[in-house]
Design a protein around this nucleic acid. Sequence first.
DNA 1: CTCCATCGATGACGTTTGTCAACGATGTGA
DNA 2: TCACATCGTTGACAAACGTCATCGATGGAG
Lengths: 120, 120
Amino acid sequence: MKISSAESVIMEALWRKQPLTSEAIIAEVGEPNGWTEGTVKQLLSRLVKKKAVGATPDGRRYQYAPLVARGDYVAAESQGLLDRLFDGRLAPLVTQFSDAGKLSDQDIAELKALVERISK
Amino acid sequence: MKISSAESVIMEALWRKQPLTSEAIIAEVGEPNGWTEGTVKQLLSRLVKKKAVGATPDGRRYQYAPLVARGDYVAAESQGLLDRLFDGRLAPLVTQFSDAGKLSDQDIAELKALVERISK
DNA sequence: CTCCATCGATGACGTTTGTCAACGATGTGA
DNA sequence: TCACATCGTTGACAAACGTCATCGATGGAG
């Protein structure tokens, strides 16, 4: 099932630290996003129903933990963007950032080192 | 306004060739996506309302053309992904594809050439 | 044992999206 | 001129999404 934009905020919290109680999650993402307790609970429920998050009973409450790895999610999202906008190829994406002047010197240095390492 | 996923298919057609009549657009994207005439018309209407597409009267019909540049759209989408998933930095994104074994030799060669060019 | 706080479940509601059909205006061929 | 084909507009409707409140169960404090 697809993870929506608001839901992904919850996922990020869980990927950062896991497991968490709903209380902890609310503390983590409620304020920064202007969400009430009810909103976060609903998002959590939907994620559990989607099997993106697991809920382990712990006394009267649950401990929540991601069931999908961040890496898998990130890979799917990235591949999706690449396919949709760049014909599945990586170089044009990098070109796009370069052309847009969005690459810092550090970015370029990192890329350079990275390509060095990969290409051997 | 935000361009939805289905709407972006129409946009891609218009970015490829412009202007187009609704008939041409339907011919272009209808079949491949399993959309009826009505569906494409509705998507077009919404894009016009969103000011993402312009409609110039041409006799009894319109000539449709994009009002947003593909480059702007691509830049925004790419930046969004980078910010959401890679802390705004490009190198980790490239690493992700590398780690996932999604880079062909050609990709690597292109990247290498690209980085060469950029870094000077 | 009773009352209260808290948790998860559920209902609710407006908006967006995906999908399609019906309608009214209008140009055109017979 | 009249019937038909075609265009854009609009209505419709289910599903997903964003957002929030209410409710029933239950565990713990007094």
